[in-house]
Design a protein around this nucleic acid. Structure first.
Lengths: 284, 284
DNA sequence: GCCCGCCCATACGCTCCGGTTATGCATAGG
DNA sequence: CCTATGCATAACCGGAGCGTATGGGCGGGC
């Protein structure tokens, strides 16, 4: 028997009311039903969530963990229902570092002209797949090749790679940088997508690295001069920051910016997005 | 009939498989069951999610919206089950701008000593209630008084208010600032919690404001010198940024930092957190 | 110390929800 | 025009889940 929302609603009610009997009243069912639903949930999860002594209930540690998680699921489900009933359509477009760079604004604007019935929501995520894998967004801007067995994608841009250095770094006065030069510096890479960046160098010529996992941190560290960064050109306009300057890398392959979605899954809204992005790419 | 996970699973399967029949196979039920479950979901939500012509299915715009949301709910639910089965306990402690400031590290350290069986997870959120209301976190650090009808809270710290200005601002050379002086500048406030900050000034003496909704943006704008900010002292150590300096505000009331939780809801893990935080407060 | 009361677990019976199988119906393709 | 395909609907059925009733453990009152 799979876990259903009724189980979670039951758990939340029990903890909130502090008794099975009252939980039953709150849920509009009998105490016996609550008892059994909760027992079923515990059996399914294989842990005890609430320790029942007569006279008192005690939430266990895992219980508290599950409870918090359950609240989240229920809140999400509730939001889903409200969103659906409102009848509004929303397309969440995920991205991890920068979205479509300087194309973001034109994209947004054209979207509102072509498809005003669906509101376009840009979502910055913290994951390399930009919310695709987690199901947060049905469509995402990625700068790595997603697993083609699970995702489809089209190229919507090519971006030069740039090197980010502190404003008071000697390199800041240079016009451009060469890959080989970076080998002597410390490179600040994203913890999860860093391997892609590193593959630009041949084995043995790779720079020393330091990990980070947020654009914010990334910029802050670079501004101190402790390390340099490599990123797509779009970041420049998307995350301007005093104390950090960007210089193109002369001999690096450009980065392919892709729009990715779940394999085989398309509908009018995502179609529009793909078309718009491709069109903007062609024009540029 | 409330929405259950089975409805969502059904929707996802239908879209993924591209046909009711195949969805049935994937779910291990008959085609008829799929048809009715989907119909029930649509009836409950009051919208059509999938337009069925014979020979082909077309996801509607709201359908796509709901689908994306459904994936999220299912992913969350799945994570819940995995988390629970693992038997590990996690306490997610939410915070919006900065957590416990310089106490954060000692807090974390003591936690690991006192309660190693529960892992403490600090979660930075984007909401004023720091995930409490949304159910993301059972316990949150807030710098506003939460609605006492729904939440309990204890004070775990008092923080001086500081004024954030650009490093090249004349004020950067001052020792401290007075409230009245800020009235002449533009103040960058958080879109949602800004009113609290503004209430420090009497009506009519309030500075001009500009909204933001992210610490990151906040810092960036302030570094440009276009506006100044007011925040709790903890932000200083939590978000150091070259180009931004903080100066105490001489005549401002201190901010109360509170630990808040859902009304009446306590268990060993949250108890420990409240005790630790209170103890750290006393010591300082 | 005993009894009573409170509250949770279990048993039993029933209802209706959700499943299956069978059939009808629309449409696209040969 | 006929057939194959795929969704909707109908009719039926089993069991999940609910309610009522009851038993049992424990604490508090007298």
């Amino acid at each position: 028997m799979p876990v259903e929302l009724r189980h979670l609603r039951c758990l939340v009610a029990v903890v909130e009311e502090g008794s099975l009997t009252d939980a039953g009243i709150a849920l509009g069912v009998s105490q016996a039903a609550v008892s059994r639903t909760l027992a079923a949930l515990e059996a399914e999860l294989g842990v005890t969530l609430v320790r029942r002594t007569s006279r008192e209930l005690a939430v266990t540690d895992v219980g508290a963990t599950v409870l918090a998680h359950a609240r989240r699921v229920l809140a999400e489900a509730d939001a889903l229902v409200r969103e659906a009933r409102s009848g509004h359509a929303v397309l969440r477009l995920g991205y991890a570092w920068s979205a479509l760079g300087r194309h973001t604004l034109p994209f947004q604007r054209r979207w509102d002209q072509v498809r005003p019935q669906t509101v376009l929501q840009l979502v910055r995520t913290h994951s390399p797949t930009a919310g695709l894998a987690e199901g947060t967004c049905p469509l995402s801007v990625v700068r790595t090749q997603p697993d083609p067995r699970r995702y489809d994608s089209v190229i919507v841009g090519l971006e030069r790679r740039v090197c980010a250095v502190a404003a008071d770094d000697p390199w800041a006065r240079r016009r451009s940088i060469r890959l080989a030069e970076i080998s002597d510096r410390t490179l600040l890479i994203d913890e999860r997508t860093g391997t892609t960046t590193l593959s630009m160098w041949a084995e043995g010529e790779r720079p020393a690295t330091e990990p980070t996992n947020d654009v914010d941190d990334w910029l802050t560290v670079i501004a101190t001069g402790r390390a340099v960064g490599v990123t797509a050109e779009a970041t420049v306009s998307q995350y301007p920051r005093p104390g950090v300057v960007y210089r193109p890398i002369r001999d690096a392959e450009p980065i392919a910016v892709r729009l990715a979605w779940w394999r085989g899954e398309r509908h009018p809204a995502t179609d529009t997005a793909v078309e718009l992005a491709t069109a903007l790419y062609r024009e540029a």
